[in-house]
Design a protein around this nucleic acid. Structure first.
Lengths: 231, 231
DNA sequence: TTCGGTATACTTGTCGACAACCTTCTCGTA
DNA sequence: TACGAGAAGGTTGTCGACAAGTATACCGAA
């Protein structure tokens, strides 16, 4: 699954800086840019045919996502190896645990409806083998849950990793699709399970459901990336 | 406690963009810039006597910290009211819980030594009534713990709020000092308690210690800001 | 050969300028 | 008066240029 360009419809209306950030992010996540590579603003600006300003903005964004470090002399790629992806799942787990446990007492009817719609669209995208649509719905599912908590500052944390999560999902979805329809269906089911425990409004069930989801996700991921994809 | 300028020694060697970010951050946190205020890059650049480039960088940074929103037309201040500060404590609690529980099994000797040194310096700064030094040690204490976990991505999350936390500490420390020596000593003791539970290496004790620390911190905060300080 | 110093090329931080866009105010018209 | 078109001012996104600082390469001397 080679994906040399970020889906154009995902960055409609975005600024040049955002676009460059998305392209560079994808290049880092899929391994075209590897750990230790040094990037120069001038060089990237030349590659993209822009001035340094948007590149500068993009590098700052990516640095904020932890994909690279801004040093005195050039930006060095940190990359996203297996350990880093595990860490990303740790953080997602931490955030979703916090958010979902916090939602135990609240009215979740509206959220549940949105989630079920999202899952249906996800299932449909799975049938059409539409990687971009599928991963987008997957992403939307989790973002909807986090947004529903109404915790501005946790939402802010999420904003710092959302694009990265989206990009990682885009690539892992490709791997999942390559493993056949059963695997795709399993992913859909996992989301239905989350929606179900959320509907139960039982804190213990929710906590366990989230824990299970992420434990399982990491296994899926680990199987998806047998050896390549090192960043 | 009016503090119209960010401590100069904290931004020695920082770029103009960082400096402007720190000054604006302080202005937002201490309420000189209030919720809903609109900021213009041109205006701020004129105020600071710089070009728009560093201002732009600063606004992006502050937007990343959630202190303002970048809209089509100007940046609008989100501010830091009581609810937002509570949320900030939520996030700190979430991060430190994750980090400290994760540290239960590890060798913490080196960390403990650093923490004890830090607490000693904190106590000394308290005796000298040195607000800047005291809050800096307070900040260093928590950052040292988080850094010791060795979890790059959680550290990355921390980076997004560290400056904000530092600024909030700077102001709350002023309030604490105003409440007399006993209160200052209590804050020092709370840190000693954290170091102690960490030394115990007992997960349950650690979890409870962290919980207690933050529960207490929020009470302290609430008492510190009786009605003013709205952002 | 190895070490020290200088020149060189490249890097970032900052600046001022311009174009495209949005908002708002004003003015002419119904 | 009410309303719509258009001008005017303000805003961001992007650009190219310059200065200051740093790593590197090179060259001469010991």
């Amino acid at each position: 699954m080679t994906m040399t360009h970020f889906p154009a419809e995902w960055l409609k209306g975005e600024s040049l800086g955002e676009t460059i950030a998305c392209e560079l992010r994808l290049a880092i996540v899929d391994g075209r840019l590897q750990h230790g590579d040094k990037l120069s603003e001038n060089r990237i600006a030349a590659d993209f045919g822009t001035s340094r300003s948007p590149v500068r903005e993009a590098l700052k964004t990516l640095s904020g996502e932890g994909l690279l470090r801004l040093e005195r002399m050039g930006a060095v790629v940190v990359g996203l190896g297996e350990a880093e992806i595990q860490e990303l799942y740790d953080v997602r787990f931490m955030i979703e645990s916090f958010v979902q446990e916090r939602m135990a007492g609240k009215e979740t009817g509206a959220l549940i409806r949105v989630l079920e719609q999202t899952i249906d669209r996800m299932e449909l995208a799975g049938k059409h083998r539409d990687i971009v649509a599928f991963s987008f719905e997957d992403f939307s599912f989790h973002e909807a849950i986090i947004a529903a908590a109404g915790h501005d500052r946790v939402m802010q944390l999420w904003r710092h990793i959302r694009q990265l999560v989206m990009t990682v999902m885009l690539l892992t979805t490709g791997e999942v699709f390559a493993q056949g329809e059963a695997k795709v269906a399993a992913v859909v089911d996992k989301h239905r399970a989350i929606a179900t425990v959320l509907k139960s409004n039982d804190p213990a069930k929710i906590r366990e459901g989230v824990r299970e989801y992420f434990a399982d996700s990491y296994v899926t991921l680990r199987n998806s990336l047998p050896e390549g994809e090192r960043g």
